[in-house]
Design a protein around this nucleic acid. Structure first.
Length: 335
DNA sequence: AATTTCCTCAACCGCTCTAGG
DNA sequence: CCCTAGAGCGGTTGAGGAAAT
């Protein structure tokens, strides 16, 4: 037995909202508010919509001061920094971008920003898409995420992480491969790393990870603080990997300047602490089936279907697997 | 000009979390 | 505590428009 549906599906309208529906909903909420009960709201105003649908429509579209499209470079950087730090906690990320909704940011990340950063994914043919989608549905129906699904987000973040960490990890294997050298946001060159510590910095220009020019003078403190937090994480991890016996006390370094209210800070803290060991946990969850070694093997055989979409697929994926092991060991030692 | 393929994003689904009884 | 309803969240879908062939 599944849980009871939130509304009578048979008598509820689905699909795009009409202007008339929008007006009804907006007028009512403008006058009376939501009344703290979205489920009851559509009946009150004579809308044949599910309460959840009303809530979503209000939050993502009708609410005042909503911005759509046209993400700025600063917003891109904030999204990137937070994604690497806390993963796909879109509501938390949205809380840092006034006027943006979690849905908007999620769509923007999945359709544009991710491709911009990770390189354009090789276009998959329709059959592949259908197959993937069918597999996903099967996995969802089984309420059991496949190991690969579990690992994708972590691997994606690892790749972003590695691109940024590159400048702080002289032991990285692709450190010596200029083709793989990422472009690093100048603000990510935090006080934890200087050109002296990493000679390559001295020969690299300051650049934006998205390949756009950034005016150092006009980046605000909030962005600097966020990026500094990310950099702190990197330096902590590098240090930790060299000293595994050290008690793992990560410092994400989020500044109090960030406009995070208590609720979101609590969510953030929980999210971060959970996220902290996500990579290790994923390894732990799936280690018994040795999925990761199989995945490396698959990657070696089928570069054309790789989601990394670059010539450095093998190196980066393998590098990611090594990092997974490191993370897993760290979490084992520290828990 | 017609058809196919790709891309975007609004909306839905189903799960977890939380507050209240 | 346990149960339930509602809120909130993240992943996914699919319609429609744009771009490519």
């Amino acid at each position: 037995m599944g849980r009871a549906p939130c509304c009578d599906k048979a008598n509820v309208k689905k699909g795009p909202w009409s202007p008339e529906e929008d007006v009804k909903l907006k007028d009512y909420i403008d006058k009376y508010g939501t009344g703290g009960n979205w489920i009851a709201l559509p009946q009150k105003i004579g809308l044949k919509r599910c309460g959840k649908s009303c809530r979503l429509r209000w939050l993502n579209y009708l609410r005042p001061n909503i911005k759509h499209g046209g993400f700025s470079e600063e917003e891109d950087s904030i999204i990137l920094s937070l994604y690497i730090s806390i993963g796909s906690r879109w509501s938390i990320i949205a809380a840092q971008l006034p006027g943006r909704t979690d849905n908007d940011i999620k769509n923007y990340w999945n359709t544009k920003l991710k491709k911009k950063l990770l390189g354009r994914q090789k276009q998959m043919n329709r059959q592949d898409s259908i197959t993937d989608s069918t597999e996903n549905n099967l996995n969802n129906n089984n309420h059991n995420k496949s190991p690969q699904n579990l690992s994708n987000s972590a691997l994606e973040r690892l790749q972003l992480h590695m691109q940024l960490q590159n400048l702080q990890s002289p032991f990285s294997s692709f450190y010596n491969n200029p083709i793989l050298w990422p472009k690093l946001h100048p603000l990510l060159q935090s006080t934890t790393t200087t050109p002296n510590q990493n000679p390559k910095l001295a020969s690299q220009e300051s650049f934006h990870p998205l390949g756009v020019n950034v005016d150092h003078q006009h980046n605000n403190m909030k962005l600097a603080e966020i990026n500094n937090g990310v950099s702190s994480l990197y330096s902590e991890n590098v240090e930790q990997s060299q000293n595994p016996a050290h008690e793992f006390q990560p410092n994400f370094g989020f500044s109090q300047d960030l406009r995070i209210d208590n609720h979101n800070m609590d969510l953030m803290n929980r999210g971060v602490s959970k996220e902290l060991f996500q990579v290790g946990n994923e390894f732990e969850l799936t280690n018994s089936s040795s999925w990761w070694s199989e995945e490396v093997e698959v990657e070696r055989k089928t570069t054309s279907s790789s989601s990394w979409g670059s010539a450095s697929v093998l190196d980066q994926t393998t590098e990611g697997m090594v990092m997974l092991q490191d993370y897993a060991q760290m979490s084992y030692h520290s828990v």
